[in-house]
Design a protein around this nucleic acid. Sequence first.
DNA 1: CAACCTGTGAAGAACTTGTGGCCTCATCGC
DNA 2: GCGATGAGGCCACAAGTTCTTCACAGGTTG
Lengths: 225, 225
Amino acid sequence: MTARILVADDDPKHAQLIRLYLEREGHQVLTVGDGRSALDVARSRKPDLLVLDVMMPLVDGLDVCRILRAESDVAILLVTARSSENDMLLGLDIGADDYMAKPVSPRELTARVRALLRRAGAGEGGLLQVGDLEIDAGRFEVRMRGEAVTLTAKEFAILELLAKEPGRVYTRGQIIDKAFGFEHDVSERTVDAHVVNLRRKVEQNPAEPEYVQTVYGRGYRMAEH
Amino acid sequence: MTARILVADDDPKHAQLIRLYLEREGHQVLTVGDGRSALDVARSRKPDLLVLDVMMPLVDGLDVCRILRAESDVAILLVTARSSENDMLLGLDIGADDYMAKPVSPRELTARVRALLRRAGAGEGGLLQVGDLEIDAGRFEVRMRGEAVTLTAKEFAILELLAKEPGRVYTRGQIIDKAFGFEHDVSERTVDAHVVNLRRKVEQNPAEPEYVQTVYGRGYRMAEH
DNA sequence: CAACCTGTGAAGAACTTGTGGCCTCATCGC
DNA sequence: GCGATGAGGCCACAAGTTCTTCACAGGTTG
């Protein structure tokens, strides 16, 4: 399960370390250096999980946590240098989902992140089914009429996004944001190109798609079956 | 969710860039180059959202924000070159809903705009129902007797407008304004043409429409059911 | 370096939109 | 009633957009 994670830490070296650990796990990571930016970015990019340092300039981690908890249910992992029992209880009280003391070990970090994402994404389930199309999100596997289909990463991401909510129309911009991940800035034609390839692999007759359909002037959607 | 957005920026190149980004998301965009025009146009066209540059001739963005906030609850996104904390807090204090520093990245802009519109348009809800006709505004979907009907953008806009208030009569001029958006200058016959096409798709017998009805000499309305 | 994935521009197809025109039909004055 | 008048229905075509598809240029990976 790959996720979008925002890391907020005022020590750039520490932030880069955490980014490295998480990217090795296949996650998309964005870092900021103060609480104010953490709030802004969390609101605008809507990550799946926040790794928050407690001590930060402008707005501290506990406040960021408190504020965000009031507006969304994003998963939050607090990190602190002070390994006091007090801080921890305070953090969990405020609505953090988990808590770690510095120094951060890679094993512990990735284990806790995995656990949090599993909890948060419990509703996502592994297997998506639309008509004769099966998508196993955990295994990156797709089957059409029982037959395995090999997709590239982007193709899979687009298919998965659309299949999560059949009938819903996504603009090309939304597909770039949500399927390719933030920090991605590509032409909207690129989405078309991937869709062409996707249809070639998934549709019986790509000229009249039964699954990945175009909604003229708006974007694409998965047909309801 | 498509919205009417007014962009106020004294740098025409920057304004065009923002227009481009927003239009790619499907919004209707109008641009002005100074604070005085921003006030005028905001009052006369009543956009859903304002993207305001802080530094502008005649009346600056902060003043425009302050003045408009006193008279309406339009969503306001401030943009500034000065990325100082001060400005930002001042902006939010004055009543702006969100705040961005230049240079503006397309993803950040569209993400913030989406968030603002979602917040502002919380009451818009999704599903309109009139008789056997269902309109899902969020998904751009229309069903008649449960069967999906494919409409063009204009057809959908007209149908949605009329369905929001069944029984109310809209003149062709009002339909052009409210359904097609500002910046639109077309003949009133155009509305007739769209209505003809709409009826072909939605009505059982287009000659005796049960939904989109003509009010002779006035305009059109959605029948009450 | 070979194979493959990803992103882009361009040509052409498909679709939408706007308009003029012609015909039908509602309305009103007689 | 009955025409005159003009509003609305509907068609066909032109112009403008948007999508599909392809070929190709980096980039990555193994």
